[in-house]
Design a protein around this nucleic acid. Structure first.
Lengths: 117, 117
DNA sequence: CCTAATATATCGGAAGCCAGGATATTGTGC
DNA sequence: GCACAATATCCTGGCTTCCGATATATTAGG
């Protein structure tokens, strides 16, 4: 055991922060909150959700009938929220460290990007 | 194909930003730049390096004898640097989005962490 | 010389991701 | 009412990625 959380799990937890959501709802929210930078696939979703439930980070909120099929809504648990807070901090710190290194070594910019200020 | 870059690849590229490094050198630098938040395994390293070389993001810099074995030093290519710049920005934006959502929904902090200001 | 420590690199199994498919309902045209 | 398309949920099989264990080589200690 080494990996705390996969990147997909991180986005799914984030999508659940402001309330329970069901399958497609999660997919849509991930696209929205990352402004299209992440395209969570349906095939990925359920496997990750199962893992998150097994780990106690997410739990079933309720089931609602919708067009003949049951929609399962999932909810973030306290433990899930804690892990998410920690992971967000970890990822941001690491991304910053990378940016810092790039800056220090010159050319941070790709063609077209605006300068420092 | 969907995944631009894995997390491990991101850290390896970052470790190469300020100059060529060899196997264990990369492992050490990743630990240092992430202040221990990432523990890159040797078993992971070479597979990822092979992929990065195949993708043209990294290339062999030189080989130096060291204690009877050859040390292979790897170097970041221009394309690798560009990808890294983009990925760092993407990850930072996503981590920020998560933090923003957590803030907006109340309790951002885990026990013990200091407050906002 | 034997053992431990250090360092490089590989390999095979486990875990994770996702395209494609199965299933079910609603809506539209005929 | 029926065929077909569109929408939505969820699973499965295969491919990719990760990493524990292992193999090899050198140096240091006893």
């Amino acid at each position: 055991m080494r990996r705390v959380m996969t990147e997909q799990a991180f986005y799914i937890l984030t999508a659940l922060v402001d309330g329970p959501r069901h399958g497609y709802g999660i997919v849509g929210e991930v696209a929205e909150l990352t402004e299209g930078r992440v395209d969570l696939r349906v095939g990925t979703l359920y496997g990750v959700l199962d893992r998150l439930v097994a780990d106690g980070h997410v739990e079933l909120d309720r089931e609602e009938p919708h067009q003949g099929r049951l929609r399962r809504y999932f909810r973030l648990t306290d433990s899930g929220r804690e892990e998410l807070v920690a992971e967000a901090a970890r990822l941001e710190a690491n991304a910053r460290a990378a940016t810092r290194k790039l800056r220090a070594s010159g050319r941070t910019r790709t063609a077209g990007a605006e300068g420092v200020a």
